[in-house]
């Protein structure tokens, strides 16, 4: 019996020491952020700026090299379904992005539709193919010749695009491009009738603020107050989209998924900074700000959630 007690005590000590050691380690472990790649330029900027004011902060983005590591924050850029969130997971939104239709700058379509621009119905026909199992109606096809390029169906941009038009991602036509949204531009640059959507941060040179070479925005039917979108620079487009809702342009939020349980203080501090000082870097990287009310809501939610950590 005594021997048994001895082993039990030894085992308890082992467990206790392991727990302490784990806690100590966790204090030193970096905050790892992973998720939708096209947001990385903005997140990298946030991290860099945050670390300037918090030199001890240890935050890093997940890369191929550390792909196996468990992330503390996961970036999401579409409205998640219930099944995508694990129990006790929450989202804090920190910005928005817009998806503009874009093509090769030599696409003859640019001339054909230059005058009026494509409306939402025409864009729908171009980008989506709906097969109704119960209908005998022939599948509606667009009158324009085009090769559609999109990310795989699970990607955030695909989900946001399909959701905006009321479709499933599986209904997006054409070829798939793996890796990152930036490669969609690579694809259409090689294909004169290639069409795709992309976010402003990739479409525009964030230094010169003008559209990248080799591509052209697809003319879309815009109301007077939004006409600047087709001609203006990145800042003009950001301003218009923040001020006006354009039915042909999906605008979706980006956010961080975090676990509501045992959230580290480093994580909550970083999120608070992103929602305050970090917001001024959104435009620089081609992202829209949250509107004031949404931003206040997110800040309040964050405060409520992490009150105990203050």
């Amino acid at each position: 019996m005594k021997t048994n007690y001895f082993y039990q005590v030894l085992f308890s000590l082992f467990i206790t020491s392991s727990v302490f050691s784990a806690e100590n380690n966790s204090a030193k472990e970096p905050v790892v952020i992973s998720g939708t790649k096209f947001t990385y330029p903005l997140v990298e900027q946030w991290i860099a700026e945050y670390q300037k004011v918090n030199p001890n902060a240890n935050i890093k983005l997940a890369t191929k090299a550390n792909a196996g590591e468990k992330s503390d924050l996961s970036i999401i850029a579409h409205l998640p379904s219930q099944s995508e969130l694990q129990p006790k997971q929450e989202i804090i939104y920190a910005g928005r992005y817009a998806l503009l239709p874009v093509t090769n700058n030599n696409n003859p379509l640019l001339v054909a539709v230059a005058k009026k621009g494509l409306n939402k119905k025409e864009l729908d026909k171009l980008f989506f193919e709906v097969v109704d199992y119960d209908s005998d109606e022939p599948i509606q096809k667009s009158k324009f010749r085009a090769n559609i390029y999109s990310r795989d169906n699970q990607a955030c941009a695909s989900t946001a695009l399909a959701g905006h038009y009321g479709h499933q991602t599986s209904e997006i036509r054409g070829k798939k491009v793996l890796g990152d949204d930036i490669y969609l531009l690579s694809a259409i640059k090689k294909d004169t009738i290639g069409l795709t959507y992309n976010n402003l941060g990739y479409l525009y040179d964030i230094n010169t603020r003008i559209l990248k070479q080799g591509i052209a925005l697809l003319p879309i039917d815009l109301k007077k107050e939004a006409k600047t979108i087709s001609t203006g620079n990145l800042d003009d487009v950001l301003n218009v989209l923040e001020a006006t809702k354009v039915e042909t342009i999906p605008v979706e939020k980006i956010g961080f998924i975090y676990s509501d349980q045992n959230t580290r203080k480093e994580v909550s501090e970083f999120l608070k900074w992103v929602l305050s000082d970090g917001q001024k870097y959104n435009h620089a990287k081609g992202f829209l700000n949250l509107d004031k009310q949404s931003l206040a809501e997110q800040q309040n939610r964050l405060s409520d959630r992490f009150l105990s950590l203050k």
């Binding site: 795989d152 070829k175 491009v177 793996l178 490669y183 690579s186």
Partner: peptide, 8 residues
Amino acid sequence: NQEIDVYE
């Protein structure tokens, strides 16, 4: 059939 462009 599905065509996939692989860049990475």
